[in-house]
Design a protein around this nucleic acid. Structure first.
Lengths: 209, 209
DNA sequence: TCGTATCTTGACCACTTGGTTAAATATACA
DNA sequence: TGTATATTTAACCAAGTGGTCAAGATACGA
Protein backbone atom coordinates (compact mmCIF):
# COMPACT_ATOMS: atom_id res chain seq x y z
CA UNK A 1 0.00 0.00 0.00
CA UNK A 2 2.32 2.70 -1.27
CA UNK A 3 1.24 6.29 -1.16
CA UNK A 4 0.24 7.32 -4.67
CA UNK A 5 1.72 10.74 -4.00
CA UNK A 6 5.06 9.01 -3.72
CA UNK A 7 4.90 7.49 -7.17
CA UNK A 8 8.27 8.18 -8.67
CA UNK A 9 8.58 11.35 -10.64
CA UNK A 10 9.94 11.57 -14.13
CA UNK A 11 13.07 13.54 -14.92
CA UNK A 12 11.02 15.82 -17.16
CA UNK A 13 8.40 16.20 -14.46
CA UNK A 14 10.94 17.40 -11.93
CA UNK A 15 12.60 19.73 -14.41
CA UNK A 16 9.38 21.28 -15.57
CA UNK A 17 7.89 21.70 -12.15
CA UNK A 18 11.03 23.48 -11.10
CA UNK A 19 10.93 25.70 -14.13
CA UNK A 20 7.29 26.55 -13.49
CA UNK A 21 7.86 27.32 -9.85
CA UNK A 22 10.82 29.53 -10.59
CA UNK A 23 8.85 31.40 -13.23
CA UNK A 24 5.82 31.66 -10.98
CA UNK A 25 7.85 33.13 -8.14
CA UNK A 26 8.85 35.99 -10.40
CA UNK A 27 5.36 36.54 -11.68
CA UNK A 28 3.51 36.26 -8.38
CA UNK A 29 6.06 38.40 -6.57
CA UNK A 30 5.62 41.28 -8.96
CA UNK A 31 1.90 41.04 -9.61
CA UNK A 32 0.33 39.40 -6.61
CA UNK A 33 -1.91 36.39 -6.91
CA UNK A 34 -4.87 37.93 -8.68
CA UNK A 35 -2.66 40.14 -10.77
CA UNK A 36 -0.86 37.16 -12.25
CA UNK A 37 -2.13 35.02 -15.11
CA UNK A 38 -1.29 31.46 -15.96
CA UNK A 39 -0.29 32.71 -19.38
CA UNK A 40 2.33 35.00 -17.88
CA UNK A 41 3.75 32.12 -15.90
CA UNK A 42 3.75 29.91 -18.98
CA UNK A 43 5.53 32.57 -20.97
CA UNK A 44 8.12 33.08 -18.23
CA UNK A 45 8.66 29.33 -18.15
CA UNK A 46 8.77 29.12 -21.94
CA UNK A 47 5.97 26.64 -22.33
CA UNK A 48 2.32 26.62 -23.25
CA UNK A 49 -0.38 27.47 -20.75
CA UNK A 50 -1.93 24.06 -21.25
CA UNK A 51 1.35 22.46 -20.34
CA UNK A 52 1.68 24.47 -17.17
CA UNK A 53 -1.78 23.28 -16.20
CA UNK A 54 -0.74 19.73 -17.01
CA UNK A 55 1.74 19.89 -14.14
CA UNK A 56 -0.32 21.98 -11.76
CA UNK A 57 -4.02 21.49 -12.30
CA UNK A 58 -4.99 24.88 -10.94
CA UNK A 59 -3.47 28.30 -10.64
CA UNK A 60 -3.93 28.08 -6.91
CA UNK A 61 -1.82 24.91 -6.88
CA UNK A 62 1.08 26.74 -8.51
CA UNK A 63 0.78 29.50 -5.97
CA UNK A 64 0.67 27.13 -3.04
CA UNK A 65 3.71 25.27 -4.33
CA UNK A 66 5.67 28.49 -4.74
CA UNK A 67 4.68 29.70 -1.31
CA UNK A 68 5.52 26.36 0.24
CA UNK A 69 8.93 26.22 -1.31
CA UNK A 70 9.70 29.83 -0.50
CA UNK A 71 8.56 29.52 3.08
CA UNK A 72 10.95 26.69 3.70
CA UNK A 73 13.85 28.84 2.54
CA UNK A 74 12.61 31.89 4.35
CA UNK A 75 12.09 30.10 7.62
CA UNK A 76 14.45 32.40 9.05
CA UNK A 77 17.89 32.56 10.54
CA UNK A 78 15.93 33.58 13.61
CA UNK A 79 16.26 29.91 14.28
CA UNK A 80 19.96 30.29 14.94
CA UNK A 81 19.73 32.89 17.66
CA UNK A 82 22.15 31.52 20.24
CA UNK A 83 21.03 31.96 23.85
CA UNK A 84 24.64 31.57 24.95
CA UNK A 85 26.04 34.20 22.62
CA UNK A 86 26.42 37.90 23.25
CA UNK A 87 22.89 39.33 22.96
CA UNK A 88 23.63 42.41 20.93
CA UNK A 89 25.97 40.52 18.64
CA UNK A 90 23.41 37.79 18.13
CA UNK A 91 20.68 40.23 17.25
CA UNK A 92 22.90 42.20 14.96
CA UNK A 93 24.05 39.05 13.21
CA UNK A 94 20.43 38.12 12.67
CA UNK A 95 19.56 41.56 11.38
CA UNK A 96 22.43 41.57 8.95
CA UNK A 97 21.45 38.17 7.68
CA UNK A 98 17.89 39.34 7.06
CA UNK A 99 19.17 42.38 5.21
CA UNK A 100 21.30 40.11 3.10
CA UNK A 101 18.27 37.98 2.33
CA UNK A 102 16.29 41.01 1.26
CA UNK A 103 19.02 41.84 -1.15
CA UNK A 104 19.55 38.38 -2.52
CA UNK A 105 15.98 37.13 -2.58
CA UNK A 106 13.79 40.18 -3.06
CA UNK A 107 11.26 38.10 -4.95
CA UNK A 108 10.69 35.90 -1.96
CA UNK A 109 10.24 38.92 0.26
CA UNK A 110 7.73 40.46 -2.12
CA UNK A 111 5.84 37.22 -2.46
CA UNK A 112 5.27 37.23 1.28
CA UNK A 113 4.50 40.89 1.40
CA UNK A 114 1.84 40.43 -1.24
CA UNK A 115 0.40 37.43 0.52
CA UNK A 116 0.18 39.19 3.87
CA UNK A 117 -1.12 42.41 2.38
CA UNK A 118 -3.99 40.51 0.80
CA UNK A 119 -4.92 39.15 4.19
CA UNK A 120 -2.67 36.08 4.23
CA UNK A 121 -5.34 33.83 2.70
CA UNK A 122 -2.97 30.94 2.01
CA UNK A 123 -0.42 31.30 4.73
CA UNK A 124 -2.44 31.87 7.88
CA UNK A 125 -1.96 28.34 9.22
CA UNK A 126 1.80 28.70 8.87
CA UNK A 127 1.71 31.98 10.74
CA UNK A 128 -0.25 30.51 13.60
CA UNK A 129 1.76 27.32 13.88
CA UNK A 130 5.37 27.04 12.82
CA UNK A 131 6.08 30.75 12.82
CA UNK A 132 4.31 31.48 16.05
CA UNK A 133 6.14 28.71 17.86
CA UNK A 134 9.49 29.79 16.50
CA UNK A 135 8.94 33.41 17.35
CA UNK A 136 7.66 32.66 20.80
CA UNK A 137 10.76 30.64 21.58
CA UNK A 138 13.12 33.26 20.32
CA UNK A 139 11.27 36.02 22.13
CA UNK A 140 11.72 34.22 25.38
CA UNK A 141 15.45 34.06 24.74
CA UNK A 142 15.44 37.80 24.17
CA UNK A 143 13.38 38.29 27.30
CA UNK A 144 15.95 36.34 29.28
CA UNK A 145 18.69 38.61 28.03
CA UNK A 146 16.65 41.61 29.07
CA UNK A 147 15.95 40.16 32.49
CA UNK A 148 19.66 39.63 32.94
CA UNK A 149 20.26 43.26 32.10
CA UNK A 150 22.21 42.46 28.95
CA UNK A 151 19.74 44.28 26.72
CA UNK A 152 17.64 47.42 26.95
CA UNK A 153 14.12 46.65 28.14
CA UNK A 154 12.33 46.53 24.80
CA UNK A 155 9.38 44.28 24.04
CA UNK A 156 10.93 41.30 22.24
CA UNK A 157 8.14 40.73 19.76
CA UNK A 158 8.19 44.34 18.69
CA UNK A 159 11.93 44.20 18.33
CA UNK A 160 11.47 41.31 15.95
CA UNK A 161 8.90 43.32 14.00
CA UNK A 162 11.34 46.19 13.80
CA UNK A 163 14.06 43.98 12.40
CA UNK A 164 11.77 42.32 9.90
CA UNK A 165 10.29 45.54 8.65
CA UNK A 166 13.52 47.49 8.45
CA UNK A 167 15.25 44.81 6.42
CA UNK A 168 12.42 43.61 4.18
CA UNK A 169 11.68 47.21 3.32
CA UNK A 170 14.67 47.18 0.98
CA UNK A 171 13.08 44.42 -1.06
CA UNK A 172 9.42 45.33 -0.79
CA UNK A 173 9.68 49.06 -1.45
CA UNK A 174 12.43 48.93 -4.01
CA UNK A 175 10.86 51.38 -6.47
CA UNK A 176 10.46 53.99 -3.76
CA UNK A 177 13.98 53.41 -2.54
CA UNK A 178 15.41 53.71 -6.01
CA UNK A 179 13.53 56.93 -6.53
CA UNK A 180 15.02 58.48 -3.42
CA UNK A 181 18.52 57.03 -3.37
CA UNK A 182 21.19 58.27 -5.72
CA UNK A 183 24.12 55.90 -5.40
CA UNK A 184 24.34 52.34 -6.65
CA UNK A 185 23.00 49.26 -4.95
CA UNK A 186 26.25 48.51 -3.16
CA UNK A 187 26.27 51.94 -1.61
CA UNK A 188 22.62 51.66 -0.65
CA UNK A 189 23.12 48.44 1.24
CA UNK A 190 26.34 49.60 2.79
CA UNK A 191 24.50 52.66 4.10
CA UNK A 192 21.64 50.52 5.27
CA UNK A 193 23.94 48.20 7.13
CA UNK A 194 25.83 51.02 8.75
CA UNK A 195 22.68 52.81 9.86
CA UNK A 196 20.94 49.72 11.12
CA UNK A 197 24.02 48.60 12.98
CA UNK A 198 24.42 51.93 14.69
CA UNK A 199 20.79 52.23 15.72
CA UNK A 200 20.22 48.65 16.73
CA UNK A 201 23.42 48.05 18.60
CA UNK A 202 23.28 51.44 20.32
CA UNK A 203 19.57 51.22 20.79
CA UNK A 204 19.72 47.86 22.51
CA UNK A 205 22.61 48.60 24.82
CA UNK A 206 21.26 48.64 28.36
CA UNK A 207 21.72 51.91 30.16
CA UNK A 208 24.24 51.58 32.95
CA UNK A 209 22.41 51.42 36.24
CA UNK B 1 -13.01 81.17 -21.57
CA UNK B 2 -13.69 79.28 -18.41
CA UNK B 3 -11.96 75.99 -17.84
CA UNK B 4 -14.50 73.22 -18.47
CA UNK B 5 -12.88 71.24 -15.65
CA UNK B 6 -14.02 73.99 -13.35
CA UNK B 7 -17.64 73.72 -14.31
CA UNK B 8 -19.46 73.75 -11.04
CA UNK B 9 -20.15 70.36 -9.54
CA UNK B 10 -23.54 69.23 -8.42
CA UNK B 11 -24.24 68.35 -4.82
CA UNK B 12 -24.99 64.80 -5.88
CA UNK B 13 -21.84 64.68 -7.93
CA UNK B 14 -19.68 65.64 -5.00
CA UNK B 15 -21.46 63.26 -2.65
CA UNK B 16 -21.22 60.32 -4.97
CA UNK B 17 -17.65 60.88 -5.95
CA UNK B 18 -16.76 60.96 -2.28
CA UNK B 19 -18.69 57.79 -1.63
CA UNK B 20 -16.99 56.04 -4.51
CA UNK B 21 -13.54 57.13 -3.47
CA UNK B 22 -14.10 56.04 0.11
CA UNK B 23 -15.37 52.68 -1.02
CA UNK B 24 -12.56 52.29 -3.52
CA UNK B 25 -9.93 53.00 -0.88
CA UNK B 26 -11.17 50.04 1.09
CA UNK B 27 -11.36 47.79 -1.90
CA UNK B 28 -8.05 48.72 -3.51
CA UNK B 29 -6.21 48.62 -0.18
CA UNK B 30 -7.26 45.06 0.51
CA UNK B 31 -7.11 43.63 -3.00
CA UNK B 32 -4.61 45.68 -4.93
CA UNK B 33 -5.44 47.25 -8.26
CA UNK B 34 -5.83 44.16 -10.39
CA UNK B 35 -7.46 42.25 -7.57
CA UNK B 36 -10.26 44.78 -7.30
CA UNK B 37 -13.32 44.91 -9.54
CA UNK B 38 -15.53 47.83 -10.34
CA UNK B 39 -18.41 45.71 -9.11
CA UNK B 40 -16.84 45.39 -5.67
CA UNK B 41 -16.39 49.13 -5.51
CA UNK B 42 -19.96 49.70 -6.62
CA UNK B 43 -21.22 47.28 -4.01
CA UNK B 44 -19.15 48.94 -1.29
CA UNK B 45 -20.53 52.30 -2.38
CA UNK B 46 -24.08 50.94 -2.62
CA UNK B 47 -24.68 51.83 -6.21
CA UNK B 48 -24.67 50.15 -9.58
CA UNK B 49 -21.52 49.50 -11.51
CA UNK B 50 -22.84 51.57 -14.38
CA UNK B 51 -23.31 54.48 -12.04
CA UNK B 52 -19.79 54.23 -10.69
CA UNK B 53 -18.56 54.37 -14.26
CA UNK B 54 -20.77 57.35 -14.89
CA UNK B 55 -18.69 59.33 -12.40
CA UNK B 56 -15.31 57.82 -13.23
CA UNK B 57 -15.15 56.66 -16.82
CA UNK B 58 -12.47 54.08 -16.17
CA UNK B 59 -11.35 51.88 -13.33
CA UNK B 60 -7.93 53.45 -13.61
CA UNK B 61 -9.51 56.87 -13.05
CA UNK B 62 -11.00 55.72 -9.76
CA UNK B 63 -7.65 54.36 -8.70
CA UNK B 64 -5.82 57.52 -9.62
CA UNK B 65 -8.33 59.63 -7.74
CA UNK B 66 -8.00 57.49 -4.63
CA UNK B 67 -4.24 57.56 -4.81
CA UNK B 68 -4.21 61.30 -5.38
CA UNK B 69 -6.44 62.00 -2.45
CA UNK B 70 -4.59 59.63 -0.17
CA UNK B 71 -1.20 60.98 -1.12
CA UNK B 72 -2.22 64.45 -0.13
CA UNK B 73 -3.13 63.22 3.34
CA UNK B 74 -0.10 61.01 3.62
CA UNK B 75 2.31 63.68 2.53
CA UNK B 76 3.88 63.27 5.74
CA UNK B 77 4.53 65.00 9.00
CA UNK B 78 8.13 64.73 7.82
CA UNK B 79 7.33 68.19 6.61
CA UNK B 80 7.23 69.49 10.13
CA UNK B 81 10.69 68.39 11.17
CA UNK B 82 11.98 71.48 12.93
CA UNK B 83 15.66 72.24 12.31
CA UNK B 84 15.71 74.32 15.47
CA UNK B 85 14.24 71.66 17.72
CA UNK B 86 16.06 69.00 19.66
CA UNK B 87 17.12 66.43 17.03
CA UNK B 88 16.24 63.29 18.92
CA UNK B 89 12.95 64.71 20.11
CA UNK B 90 12.07 65.85 16.60
CA UNK B 91 12.78 62.47 15.12
CA UNK B 92 10.93 60.67 17.84
CA UNK B 93 7.93 62.94 17.44
CA UNK B 94 7.90 62.19 13.75
CA UNK B 95 8.19 58.48 14.36
CA UNK B 96 5.35 58.47 16.81
CA UNK B 97 3.18 60.41 14.43
CA UNK B 98 3.84 57.89 11.67
CA UNK B 99 2.99 55.06 14.01
CA UNK B 100 -0.23 56.81 14.87
CA UNK B 101 -1.03 57.16 11.19
CA UNK B 102 -0.45 53.47 10.63
CA UNK B 103 -2.95 52.75 13.31
CA UNK B 104 -5.56 55.24 12.25
CA UNK B 105 -5.27 54.96 8.49
CA UNK B 106 -4.11 51.43 7.78
CA UNK B 107 -6.00 51.44 4.50
CA UNK B 108 -3.96 54.33 3.23
CA UNK B 109 -0.78 52.60 4.22
CA UNK B 110 -1.80 49.40 2.47
CA UNK B 111 -2.85 51.25 -0.64
CA UNK B 112 0.67 52.64 -0.94
CA UNK B 113 2.26 49.35 -0.08
CA UNK B 114 0.31 47.66 -2.84
CA UNK B 115 1.14 50.38 -5.31
CA UNK B 116 4.87 50.25 -4.57
CA UNK B 117 4.97 46.47 -4.48
CA UNK B 118 3.50 46.34 -7.97
CA UNK B 119 6.29 48.56 -9.18
CA UNK B 120 4.69 51.96 -8.45
CA UNK B 121 3.10 52.19 -11.89
CA UNK B 122 0.92 55.16 -11.02
CA UNK B 123 2.94 56.96 -8.41
CA UNK B 124 6.44 57.06 -9.83
CA UNK B 125 6.26 60.75 -10.80
CA UNK B 126 5.22 61.67 -7.29
CA UNK B 127 8.12 59.69 -5.86
CA UNK B 128 10.63 61.40 -8.11
CA UNK B 129 9.28 64.89 -7.62
CA UNK B 130 7.40 65.99 -4.53
CA UNK B 131 8.59 63.18 -2.31
CA UNK B 132 12.18 63.29 -3.44
CA UNK B 133 12.40 67.01 -2.85
CA UNK B 134 10.80 66.77 0.56
CA UNK B 135 13.01 63.90 1.63
CA UNK B 136 16.14 65.52 0.34
CA UNK B 137 15.43 68.65 2.34
CA UNK B 138 14.70 66.80 5.52
CA UNK B 139 17.75 64.59 5.11
CA UNK B 140 19.93 67.62 4.91
CA UNK B 141 18.48 68.84 8.19
CA UNK B 142 19.31 65.51 9.74
CA UNK B 143 22.78 65.66 8.25
CA UNK B 144 23.29 69.04 9.84
CA UNK B 145 22.37 67.62 13.21
CA UNK B 146 24.87 64.83 12.69
CA UNK B 147 27.58 67.22 11.64
CA UNK B 148 26.98 69.21 14.78
CA UNK B 149 27.42 66.06 16.82
CA UNK B 150 23.83 66.08 18.07
CA UNK B 151 23.03 62.75 16.49
CA UNK B 152 24.84 59.47 15.94
CA UNK B 153 26.41 59.35 12.47
CA UNK B 154 23.75 57.39 10.64
CA UNK B 155 22.90 57.89 6.98
CA UNK B 156 19.85 60.17 7.04
CA UNK B 157 18.01 58.58 4.13
CA UNK B 158 18.34 55.14 5.64
CA UNK B 159 17.13 56.45 8.95
CA UNK B 160 14.04 57.68 7.18
CA UNK B 161 13.57 54.26 5.61
CA UNK B 162 13.88 52.68 9.02
CA UNK B 163 11.20 54.90 10.46
CA UNK B 164 8.85 54.41 7.55
CA UNK B 165 9.21 50.66 7.51
CA UNK B 166 9.02 50.13 11.24
CA UNK B 167 5.83 52.13 11.57
CA UNK B 168 4.01 51.15 8.39
CA UNK B 169 4.69 47.54 9.18
CA UNK B 170 1.91 47.65 11.75
CA UNK B 171 -0.60 48.49 9.05
CA UNK B 172 0.79 46.53 6.13
CA UNK B 173 1.50 43.26 7.90
CA UNK B 174 -1.48 43.26 10.19
CA UNK B 175 -2.47 39.62 9.67
CA UNK B 176 1.01 38.46 10.57
CA UNK B 177 1.13 40.72 13.57
CA UNK B 178 -2.23 39.53 14.80
CA UNK B 179 -1.10 35.95 14.43
CA UNK B 180 1.93 36.53 16.60
CA UNK B 181 0.68 39.02 19.14
CA UNK B 182 -1.57 37.95 21.98
CA UNK B 183 -2.81 41.13 23.65
CA UNK B 184 -5.29 43.63 22.26
CA UNK B 185 -4.57 46.44 19.85
CA UNK B 186 -3.94 48.99 22.57
CA UNK B 187 -1.30 46.80 24.12
CA UNK B 188 0.28 46.12 20.75
CA UNK B 189 0.71 49.78 19.94
CA UNK B 190 1.82 50.63 23.44
CA UNK B 191 4.52 47.98 23.14
CA UNK B 192 5.44 49.20 19.69
CA UNK B 193 5.78 52.75 20.90
CA UNK B 194 7.85 51.77 23.88
CA UNK B 195 10.20 49.61 21.85
CA UNK B 196 10.60 52.09 19.04
CA UNK B 197 11.20 54.92 21.45
CA UNK B 198 13.87 53.02 23.30
CA UNK B 199 15.71 51.90 20.20
CA UNK B 200 15.45 55.09 18.23
CA UNK B 201 16.22 57.53 20.99
CA UNK B 202 19.03 55.39 22.38
CA UNK B 203 20.20 54.43 18.95
CA UNK B 204 20.52 57.99 17.76
CA UNK B 205 22.22 59.41 20.82
CA UNK B 206 25.73 60.40 19.78
CA UNK B 207 28.46 58.60 21.69
CA UNK B 208 30.32 60.99 23.99
CA UNK B 209 33.63 61.84 22.40
C1' DT C 1 -45.68 73.32 -12.24
C1' DC C 2 -43.02 72.47 -16.15
C1' DG C 3 -38.98 71.42 -18.89
C1' DT C 4 -34.35 70.50 -19.05
C1' DA C 5 -30.22 68.67 -17.31
C1' DT C 6 -28.56 65.38 -14.38
C1' DC C 7 -28.66 60.85 -12.49
C1' DT C 8 -29.41 55.80 -12.43
C1' DT C 9 -29.52 51.25 -14.05
C1' DG C 10 -30.64 46.83 -16.73
C1' DA C 11 -29.14 44.83 -20.67
C1' DC C 12 -25.57 44.12 -23.44
C1' DC C 13 -20.80 43.53 -25.70
C1' DA C 14 -15.99 42.36 -26.32
C1' DC C 15 -12.22 40.60 -24.32
C1' DT C 16 -9.51 38.24 -20.82
C1' DT C 17 -8.64 34.33 -18.27
C1' DG C 18 -8.84 29.79 -15.79
C1' DG C 19 -9.47 25.45 -17.15
C1' DT C 20 -10.71 21.18 -20.47
C1' DT C 21 -10.14 18.00 -24.20
C1' DA C 22 -8.62 15.38 -27.83
C1' DA C 23 -5.21 14.38 -30.67
C1' DA C 24 -0.28 14.46 -31.86
C1' DT C 25 4.37 13.69 -30.36
C1' DA C 26 8.17 12.28 -27.52
C1' DT C 27 10.15 9.09 -24.15
C1' DA C 28 11.25 5.01 -21.66
C1' DC C 29 11.89 0.48 -21.39
C1' DA C 30 10.94 -4.65 -22.17
C1' DT D 1 12.28 -2.27 -32.17
C1' DG D 2 7.67 -1.91 -30.59
C1' DT D 3 4.51 -0.39 -27.40
C1' DA D 4 2.73 1.70 -23.31
C1' DT D 5 3.17 5.81 -20.98
C1' DA D 6 4.23 10.57 -20.43
C1' DT D 7 4.41 15.11 -22.59
C1' DT D 8 2.82 18.93 -25.42
C1' DT D 9 -0.32 21.99 -27.53
C1' DA D 10 -4.12 23.94 -30.58
C1' DA D 11 -8.71 24.63 -30.16
C1' DC D 12 -12.31 25.38 -27.34
C1' DC D 13 -15.52 26.72 -23.41
C1' DA D 14 -17.65 29.21 -19.55
C1' DA D 15 -17.27 32.65 -16.22
C1' DG D 16 -15.81 37.08 -14.97
C1' DT D 17 -14.80 41.78 -15.96
C1' DG D 18 -14.30 46.53 -17.94
C1' DG D 19 -16.95 49.36 -20.32
C1' DT D 20 -21.21 51.12 -23.40
C1' DC D 21 -25.85 52.49 -24.28
C1' DA D 22 -30.44 53.77 -24.33
C1' DA D 23 -34.25 54.55 -21.73
C1' DG D 24 -36.44 55.73 -17.55
C1' DA D 25 -36.26 58.32 -12.98
C1' DT D 26 -35.08 62.29 -10.39
C1' DA D 27 -33.66 66.95 -9.13
C1' DC D 28 -33.95 71.68 -9.75
C1' DG D 29 -34.19 76.45 -11.68
C1' DA D 30 -37.51 79.51 -14.07
Amino acid sequence: MSNPALKKRTRIQVENEDRIIAAALDVFATNGYRGSTVDQIALAASMSKANVLYYFNRKQAIYTAVLQRTVSVWLDPLDQLDPAGDPIEEIWRYTREKLQMSREAPHASRLFANEILQGAPSITPFLHNELKTLVRNKCSIIQTWIDRGQLAPVVPLNLVFLIWSATQHYADFEPQINALHDGDEDALFADAERTLKMIITNGLRPSVS
